[in-house]
């Protein structure tokens, strides 16, 4: 079992994270990865230049670690990899990478889905959109909380 949970202050390169997961998962049969990208538009349709993700010095890395470890315990996976940006992320750039490797695909799909539902609602970040509307705090939607509740 290998678990990576990393707070990334600089550019997140999903292709490098996937390559690392492929390397670690030799002998497995499935990898599922998700990459979240900063959207160039707000819910209200205004242009967004960048997202700014504030974090807590201890609680944020701990939250990433807890979510990755709990995914590894819950599903029949051999690798879990979570990398999350902090700081300013320009529109179009990756914010988060969540990947899992397993012997069979179902566990990898479920682990990646679970990772993202928990990251959306429990990873310790405070997120602002900067753009035509000025600066807007973004919090999880009721749908995000409902998605999280699916896992109990």
């Amino acid at each position: 079992m290998s678990i990576v949970a990393r707070l990334e202050e600089h550019a997140l390169k999903p292709e490098q994270e996937l390559a690392a997961l492929l390397e670690e998962a030799k002998g497995g049969g499935a990898i599922v990865s998700f990459t979240g990208i900063a959207r160039p538009g707000s819910k209200g349709g205004l242009a967004v230049d960048r997202l700014v993700l504030e974090h807590h010095p201890t609680l944020t890395p701990q939250s990433l670690e807890d979510i990755a470890v709990e995914a590894a315990q819950r599903f029949d996976v051999s690798q879990v990899r979570v990398v999350h940006r902090c700081g300013a992320v320009e529109a179009g750039e990756p914010i988060v990478f969540a990947g899992a490797a397993a012997l069979h695909r179902r566990a990898a799909f479920e682990a990646a889905d679970y990772l993202m539902d928990r990251l959306k609602t429990e990873a310790v970040f405070w997120k602002r959109e900067i753009g035509d509307a000025g600066s807007e705090w973004i919090e999880p939607t009721e749908r995000d909380y409902a998605d999280r509740e699916r896992w109990g």
């Binding site: 807590h56 988060v96 990873a123 310790v124 405070w126 997120k127 999880p140």
Partner: peptide, 10 residues
Amino acid sequence: VEFLPPVSGG
């Protein structure tokens, strides 16, 4: 004490 508003990742 630290007060944290609702968190949001991803």
